[in-house]
Design a protein around this nucleic acid. Sequence first.
DNA 1: GCTTCGAACTTTACTATTGAAGTCTTCAGA
DNA 2: TCTGAAGACTTCAATAGTAAAGTTCGAAGC
Lengths: 182, 182
Amino acid sequence: MPETPGPAEPSLEEQIAAYQREFQDLDPQVEQVVSALSRLNRRMNVAYSRHTATLGISNAEWEVLKALVVSGAPYRLGPGDLAKRLGLTPAAMTHRIDRMANDGLVTRERDEANRVRVIVELTVEGREKWLEAMRMASVFEEDLLQDLSSEERAAFGEMLMRVLRRVEETQPDAGGRLSDLD
Amino acid sequence: MPETPGPAEPSLEEQIAAYQREFQDLDPQVEQVVSALSRLNRRMNVAYSRHTATLGISNAEWEVLKALVVSGAPYRLGPGDLAKRLGLTPAAMTHRIDRMANDGLVTRERDEANRVRVIVELTVEGREKWLEAMRMASVFEEDLLQDLSSEERAAFGEMLMRVLRRVEETQPDAGGRLSDLD
DNA sequence: GCTTCGAACTTTACTATTGAAGTCTTCAGA
DNA sequence: TCTGAAGACTTCAATAGTAAAGTTCGAAGC
């Protein structure tokens, strides 16, 4: 039997202990919260990727579908708006829309009222993909919080919102690139 | 004055309301938790990027520094181990190490005891970069949780750990790619 | 009514990551 | 010892992202 199959990812406890060893004035409580947040998010994204992969789309495409659905009927947004919402450059958005239009998830057409603008619209197929992804996600998310009572979920959500508010107040943001959509 | 400066990112409340409108059997409480988690993580990564940028490194490079520091003295790991820990392919790791060795953050040498292996070792400069990044991060993180009392932080961390444990139990993971390190 | 400015998107060049194929080393069996 | 298989990285071709330059259209002055 293999003693250690190779140094895999250290546990959160090990990781925090290592940071404390290397950096004295670290608040272990703060670090535990932050590290758990980050690792949890990573695990969740891996799970979402599995979901979307079974539908033949990528997480990146799912994000675009989500943004369009959230915008509400008639599910239309310009590439620039989409880019802002997803935290991408306009150039990246252009390419992503290329691919998605190619796959029939959205249509792209010029806005005849103002021909500088472009309108990206969700197709029926795109909406159905979103719905299937959403179904899988909601089952997964419900399972995720299974060990928290309803009261705990409420307290958890409330604290998350408080921290989120704090970061949005203190970080002007300036249209941040990076990372995944909610 | 501009009525709306352009549809920016919708607030979490708006977003959740939109999901409920489009997808009836969605638990708003669950969705609030999940969306807040995801958005918070995004904001945090934007902030970390600002920190690392001022040090002249990227978040990607910082992740490698963190993994090496967490491994403890003498701060050595193989490219394969690093790739596992960061959730990257070995190929990506090869390139990342190229760049970092070029920048003097790590050294790369063949393991003379087993010449198939390669040893990546943190340099003094790399360790200092890590330390500076860590200082900035710890200030930011302390500020992030400012609105939570010590009791709340403990409860928050405990719930995060419970959810994390849940996802790690139910998702076999199989060495997930994707996303950022803790 | 030109002309210039700015906005919205696209194009281009470059960088980072992936998956698959390739290389080199070690180890176990014939 | 030779040979074959497996492991650890690297190389290669293709994909997706960024930053900056380029296009095109609309609007505001002169």
